[in-house]
Write a protein that binds this DNA or RNA. Structure first.
Lengths: 210, 210
DNA sequence: ATTTTTCTGTTGCAAAAACAACAAATTATT
DNA sequence: AATAATTTGTTGTTTTTGCAACAGAAAAAT
């Protein structure tokens, strides 16, 4: 995600200005938070990467969302309707800033610099989140693995302003993200290479004009 | 969508209090708006129903989102990254209230009652929108037509607090919404009936304990 | 009231995806 | 540095889905 304003710089400056926020660091595979009951927790990923995942009855893991630096997440964004619990899992050593939505919506009583400013940016933050979710829906609504892969690659390419880019996942996780079988996806990747759509070295992809 | 506050009543009271908003009525299949370039347009559906749709190269129609009374939509929520144009199409006679996001984010210079109040509720509105999008992602990430159907039915059932409910789509549109082939979906519906998961009379579905 | 259009329901067949199982390569861990 | 664990890559087989084509029902238009 990239914003019109420099949220990274903003957070750097303000992260310690209110005692009602706190930071915590998580190691790989640790559960950052789980979405169970309605809490007012909002989280910003300061460093590292994390996934929002669900495990269904069949034991399939679904990566609902993937977060990287400066992404915002939390239960406020996700009214639970299903019985299944959702987890945010750190994919590597990650630092997360926690704060309460109450202190954004109403005013933080602490008279701090942090919350009013965040408040001001909060709208823009969630509009970007919506854009992100819409893109995800567009990906998932593609009818074949090939189309999903190519759409996703185009997306990454557009973000990087380059025909070459790195997949921010392991291929195993990419399959869960696109909600397809991993081996079927591998087969399709192979075909895309053979048919001259892409080149691939490890997680580095280059889109070719076909 | 249902909100904690009565947005319907709010809109009824305030819709005419600012000259910077306007209403328009559309007949069935008319294009309400299209998402092309970055405009500040926000829309609320006062009456009727409408779909956000896209047509891809293969001529497939994808129903990206489905709107009913009091739903909010507009380009602000959707940064266009693909080349494809998006349309909002009225599914029946519909009335839409248009206003500008500028008048929410900054203050409306008109000194009206409408915009400040909307401002206040806007956060909650978009948080509900996010919840909706997340549910959609959960549906689309289901790996089979059967799972998609059952998840969607469970959702409708939960919303209505009843095992019986009406599909708010034609079956043709439902297939586009779940992003599956219509005939394959019909086949699966038939199997679900035969195997005692559901009963179905027209668009009325009842979930049975299996 | 009749015609036209859209929607529902079905089916055979082809194509695509999932499942399963395994070897090789890479990355973590001790 | 050696071992364990995870990820990548591959392929045969089964299952599911998409495609195509059509008839009947329902809804909309004239």
């Amino acid at each position: 995600m990239s914003y019109n304003f420099d949220i990274g710089a903003f957070i750097e400056n303000f992260r310690n200005s209110c005692s009602r926020t706190y930071e915590k660091t998580f190691s790989k595979n640790e559960v950052v938070t789980s979405y169970i009951r309605k809490r007012q927790q909002v989280c910003i990923l300061l460093e590292g990467s994390a996934d929002l995942v669900r495990y269904d009855r069949n034991g399939n893991r679904i990566i609902i969302d993937h977060f990287s630096k400066n992404d915002i997440f939390g239960e406020v964004f996700y009214n639970i309707t299903t019985n299944n619990e959702l987890f945010v899992e750190a994919k590597q050593k990650s630092t997360v800033l926690f704060y309460s939505y109450d202190n954004i919506a109403s005013n933080c009583k602490n008279n701090c610099d942090f919350h009013p400013t965040l408040s001001k940016y909060f709208n823009e933050l969630i509009l970007y989140k919506i854009t992100d979710l819409n893109m995800r829906i567009e990906l998932l609504s593609k009818r074949s693995i090939r189309e999903k892969l190519l759409s996703y690659f185009n997306l990454l390419s557009t973000k990087k302003f380059s025909k070459s880019f790195t997949i921010p996942f392991s291929l195993t996780d990419l399959a869960d993200y696109l909600s397809v079988d991993r081996s079927a996806m591998m087969r399709e990747l192979k075909l895309l290479k053979e048919e001259g759509f892409i080149t691939k070295t490890g997680n580095q992809i280059t889109l070719l004009q076909h």
